[in-house]
Write a protein that binds this DNA or RNA. Structure first.
Lengths: 324, 324
DNA sequence: GTGAAAGCGCTAACAG
DNA sequence: CTGTTAGCGCTTTCAC
């Protein structure tokens, strides 16, 4: 492996000059530049990122922590984040936490060790004290971590309202909402409350089913939905995450329900899976690309040491489908 | 930021002793160890990964290159790879190539620059010469790159055969298969050939529709399938990637087709999306977790400098669903 | 404009 | 068992 010294020696200049050429910085005479370039060519020199990292004490790597990479919501988010970061010269390290003992702690340690310059944290963590006194750039994605850490999220209150209004356009009497684990501290929890409140005021019965904090697999959702049908046989409206609503649609027939006449369904998130089935699922759509954009924007601001402006909740929209 | 020297000074030992304690290597007297640990505690010392990387000239980062992270097949693959790598003390850097100008070249350059210790390459690249003379650890995931680069893939020939047999159990006359771009050099192309051959021998008409090399979005598939229905109005069997078959199922009604009686569908890949719709899609299932396992196994073998054994094609299986 | 030199923070011989 | 020393490869003052 040729190093900057080898290039310097061959070009008969000092290493610092090679460095200048490499980084297109400062003034280098044309003649020196040519010599250096020729030498780099001849030695097929490739600068070492590790050395540069140590010297500059940054890696240009951002970590993204999510529960599950293959989940449509998080997968789409990571895809968008990676594209944004790439456009700004950063690399993306991914970390999934579900089904791993204390992965989140490990990832945060990497941040401390300066493996990454910052992290975007969107895992469903229960122990938030690992983020205390981090003193390094962290942006939360749809999670409340602590007062120091800025948070990027959609306007879930409005999401809850829009969903409620969708049901109100029809004559539902008993609606069940499937929600994430309450102990996961997330702004997403707000949509349940708004949703329930609006519908209750309209005289509709609203029951709530809570998922386990680590439920992400299709099988988890099937079970939840089966229990739901057993427990609330007269349910005529269900509101829940995309995959849960897919399960409802899938199991409805078995339970003798016809959609949308007997049972209306509205999904929350509105990822692509609500658009690839036989019927398009009516859904509240989170603006994932925008969320990714602002998360990246923010983490880079933090890395630069700026404060930046306070983040606004991003607008959600209704996808009118065949299920409500 | 406290460094190893600060710790050494405070503990009144040499930096090398601190290093030994840190890495639990060699013999260190209990008394020295205690002093070092106390000093580390007091300074809340955190070792710098960058310095260690430079010194050891490795990063413990593996890059995974795929076309699209949110795609169910690649998302599931990345998730599994990340978990495997995590278990072995490696970190996962993701790189998506679709809709980026020359991202693949950039990622390969990172490998050269030693940003990563190795890469698992699963993108749909057209220009393979960027992998010439790399001389660094690369494992191909379902792609032929060149003779030097080992490749992990499923047994697509058997996949083609099993799919053909599925159709043969019913009375199909005209089958269309939707295939990936032929110019993407992948063992996956083998399933088309076997499939076609077996069915042709049975006297069935088999037509082939080729997708663009960069088609991954649901919308891309809709268009392909619409064209297919227009061009082959008497088609009574379709074989194609999961998302394409989803589109078939979705559009069948519009074209007055009833599934499975009028039109039989078999998907290739068998990701979770074939199991979350109203009807389970009959599919050839690629063993994604196993593929991930072997890809990781292989890249680590290469990094260690071993040769390892030649990789075998991994068995695929039939998921009997409602569509064939 | 360019070179010498001092780091960045850690590891690894090699003496003692 | 422990300290000394010499790197790893690049960046960056600061003289000349």
């Amino acid at each position: 492996m040729a190093s900057i010294k080898d290039v310097a020696k061959l070009a008969k200049v000092a290493p610092s000059t090679v460095s200048l050429v490499l980084n297109q910085k400062g003034y280098v005479s044309d003649i020196s530049r040519k010599k250096v370039e020729a030498a780099m060519q001849e030695l097929s020199y490739i600068p070492s990122e590790m050395a540069r990292n140590l010297s500059l004490s940054r890696t240009n790597i951002i970590g993204v922590i999510v529960p599950e990479i293959s989940h449509p919501f998080f997968g789409t988010f990571i895809h968008a984040v990676e594209a944004e970061l790439y456009g700004r010269g950063y690399k993306t390290m991914v970390c999934s936490t579900v089904q791993k003992a204390n992965a989140e702690q490990d990832f945060v340690d990497m941040l401390r060790r300066r493996t990454m310059d910052g992290i975007i944290m969107g895992a469903h963590s229960l122990e938030l004290d690992i983020y205390d006194n981090i003193n390094r750039p962290v942006v939360a994605f749809d999670r409340f971590i602590n007062d120091e850490i800025p948070i990027v999220h959609a306007d879930h209150q409005s999401g809850g309202r829009i969903a409620a209004e969708a049901f109100l356009r029809h004559a539902c009497h008993h609606i069940v909402q499937i929600i994430g684990a309450r102990k996961v501290s997330s702004p997403a929890n707000e949509h349940h409350e708004v949703f329930k409140q609006i519908l209750c005021e309209a005289g509709i019965i609203v029951d709530t089913v809570e998922m386990a904090w680590n439920a992400f697999e299709p099988i988890d959702f099937s079970q939840i939905v089966e229990n739901l049908f057993m427990e609330y046989p007269d349910v005529d409206g269900i509101f829940g995450p995309d995959l849960a609503i897919c399960s409802c649609l899938r199991l409805a027939e078995q339970y003798g329900r016809h959609i949308p006449d007997d049972l209306r369904l509205v999904a929350y998130d509105g990822t692509y899976i609500t658009r690839i089935g036989v019927r398009t699922i009516t859904a509240i759509v989170q603006p994932i690309p925008l969320l990714a954009h602002f998360a990246v924007e923010k983490i880079i601001t933090l890395i630069r040491g700026d404060v930046g402006e306070k983040l606004q909740a991003l607008s959600v929209s209704l996808q009118q489908g065949d299920t409500c």
